[in-house]
């Protein structure tokens, strides 16, 4: 769990770093790649060091997660939220708040900035809106999700679910639990998005075109053929047959019960 939290911190710290900058982001092209990653990594490491210092020094009053206890909740602290690089926080840590019973802690600059990094990462963790891109819950351990019955899941796989018509635990699904994080595995068996449909378009002349379906709305059909060329036609002028490799998953998504989901996941999780 600690390791997972750490991973999360890295992810959210990047967001924090971006947000903390004043004005529009500067020159993306050069700054993107390696430099940004190294900065993220450094921030995450600082936050992790800060966490250790915090647990040892501050957690007694403010709680291990900084949500408070004997001392105040630092996630909801206006002082921490308005702090920039320790400008507000560090003086409070070093001088204490004698009037409120907080002693001063004679920490060095590095410890102070690490604690600052930890607290801002912690705030981002709490503030995170899960539908923000990159906010996907990859930190949930398989043990927490595998609350169903592997037996019932297996029965569903070979029975009511009809999964075994296309999939096999020793074939395409062999070792599947190792390939994906637990939440990814759960999401992918519910609906493994990303596989495009193929279409065969028959023209009035009888000529047929096949390829990857790019668009089919009320008016237009468009494909990319095997040679990579794009074609489109007004829908009313042609006959279109679409083959959707996910059609079964799409229909099934609306049939799963909550219990089916947990049982099937618990079964799939055994395929290591």
């Amino acid at each position: 769990m600690r390791k997972l939290t750490f991973v999360l911190l890295i992810a959210f710290f990047a967001v924090a770093v971006l947000r903390a900058q004043e004005g529009p982001p500067q020159g993306g092209a050069q700054r993107g790649g390696a430099g940004a990653r190294a900065q993220k990594q450094a921030q995450a490491e600082a936050a992790e060091r800060g966490r250790k210092t915090f647990v040892a020094t501050c957690a007694g009053c403010h709680g291990e997660d900084a949500t408070g206890g004997r001392g105040s909740d630092l996630i909801r602290s206006a002082l921490v939220r308005h702090d920039k690089n320790g400008d507000l926080l560090s003086p409070v840590i070093t001088a204490g708040r004698p009037d409120r019973g907080m002693p001063g802690f004679p920490l060095g600059e590095k410890d102070l900035s690490d604690i600052d990094a930890f607290l801002h990462a912690q705030i981002d963790l709490y503030d995170m809106h899960t539908r923000v891109p990159g906010g996907y819950p990859d930190d949930i351990p398989a043990s927490r999700l595998a609350t169903g019955s592997a037996e019932a899941g297996k029965a569903y796989f070979y029975g009511a679910g009809g999964c075994s018509k296309c999939h096999s635990p020793t074939g395409d699904l062999a070792g599947i639990a190792k390939k994906y994080s637990a939440p990814d595995l759960q999401q992918r068996f519910l609906y493994p998005a990303g596989k495009p449909s193929t279409a065969t378009v028959t023209l009035p002349s009888g000529k047929k075109f096949s390829g990857t379906l790019l668009l089919k709305d009320e008016f237009t059909v468009a494909i990319r053929d095997a040679d990579g060329w794009y074609h489109s036609w007004p829908l009313r002028a042609v006959k279109v047959e679409v083959e959707d490799p996910l059609a079964w998953h799409f229909a099934q998504a609306y049939k799963y019960t909550n219990a089916d989901m947990h049982n099937l996941f618990t079964y799939l999780e055994t395929l290591k």
């Binding site: 949500t67 909740d73 996630i75 909801r76 709490y126 503030d127 995170m128 809106h129 899960t130 539908r131 906010g135 996907y136 819950p137 930190d139 949930i140 939440p183 999401q187 519910l190 609906y191 998005a193 799409f250 998504a253």
Partner: peptide, 18 residues
């Protein structure tokens, strides 16, 4: 993801399957 009475913020995660 954050159970208990002391939870704050979003306290959960969700995703849209389809």
């Amino acid at each position: 993801t954050i159970p208990g009475k002391k939870a704050q913020g979003w306290a959960g995660r969700d995703f849209t399957v389809v």
